[in-house]
Nucleic acid binder design. Structure first.
Lengths: 183, 183
DNA sequence: CGGCTCATGTAAAGAGTTACATGATTTG
DNA sequence: CAAATCATGTAACTCTTTACATGAGCCG
């Protein structure tokens, strides 16, 4: 059911088409929270419209249909956002890999950790820039500001974790510091 | 494919039955990384056995079958753990809700944030205790130590985020501090 | 020996991915 | 006018959940 409410939520931000929604998943939601392809989005929009939760408010070129929430849709979204009792469990392959990583020996794990470290630093920089930009001139924050700040903090914690993990593993791999890989 | 490697990974820790694996998902993996029910686990174990990646090493009471990795299974797991190129996107309904939370007005969001804050503090305490226990007397760390430390840090960051978010929202809801809710 | 837990399974439905398919509009 | 992008759709397959189903062993 999450997709359904994700769509309602994005339409609450502003009316848009299936195409727009697809891009929003691709550009921001996908990396932090949820993903869906157009092949799942279009049928779901048709169901939402059939259920009276959204409605076409504009028809444009190339068959483009812009949807907006109906009053019923706004209520459904609101009800869902206020009720946290049925939160789906997280599905995070990254953490799964961490769980299983003891299978590798430290000399194998260390380069992986360095890659993660790099990646996390880049994420922090990118997210900080985005949050900064959204906080912009007029002091208004924009949609998803709580998530943005959450993301920044999560990735900062990830950077610190990676630093800790590297030093932890480096202790188990004494041959560090010399570029010499012989014997 | 993640389930497949999750099972191989857990069997790499120690040989166990489908029943044991089901409980491990339920008790620890579910909350942080991945979930699967017995109805998905048993058929997958049969497939893994058919593919020669695991094998029954013991048969016990009530039809219990204990599986262990074969050499091929160990290689498959190792290959997967070393190759991070095809990481599945995160599916996190919690973050999705944060994304959409601007739909609520601050007076509605604030109590939700307080609940999250409480919950995060409990998670930190529980995880710290678990990590501490695993770090135990002999200094050995146990399976999943990297994930454990990661979890603690993520939840600590969540607590700090919640504190920030509460103070941020409280500014938008001036009638705080008086328990009086009348007009 | 009755109730609980252990232990495994299958079937149907729902959610999500991949691949196939089509056509309109814009841009250079 | 050709190429790229916009825009929507469906079909087949895989993955996941929910529900149904069964029986053995353990504990009081």
């Amino acid at each position: 059911m999450s997709l359904r409410y994700a769509l309602l939520g994005l339409l609450a931000d502003e009316p848009q088409s299936g195409y727009d929604l697809t891009q929003r998943f691709e550009r921001s939601l996908k990396r932090y929270a949820w993903h869906a392809r157009h092949s799942q989005i279009y049928p779901e929009l048709n169901k939402l419209a059939a259920d009276g939760l959204i409605a076409v408010v504009e028809e444009g070129a190339r068959g483009r249909r812009t949807y907006a929430l109906t009053e019923a849709g706004r209520e459904a979204l609101h009800g869902w956002l206020m009720d946290w009792s049925s939160l789906q469990p997280v599905r995070n392959e990254f953490v799964l890999r961490l769980f299983l990583m003891s299978v590798l020996d430290p000399s194998e794990a260390l380069p992986l950790l360095r890659g993660i470290h790099e990646h996390a630093k880049e994420e922090v920089a990118e997210l900080e820039a985005r949050v900064e930009a959204a906080g912009g001139p007029d002091g208004e924050w924009g949609f998803g500001r709580l998530a943005g700040e959450y993301g920044v903090r999560q990735y900062r914690a990830m950077v610190e974790w990676a630093e800790w993990a590297e030093s932890e593993l480096a202790r188990a791999v004494p041959d560090e510091g010399s570029g010499d890989t012989s014997t």
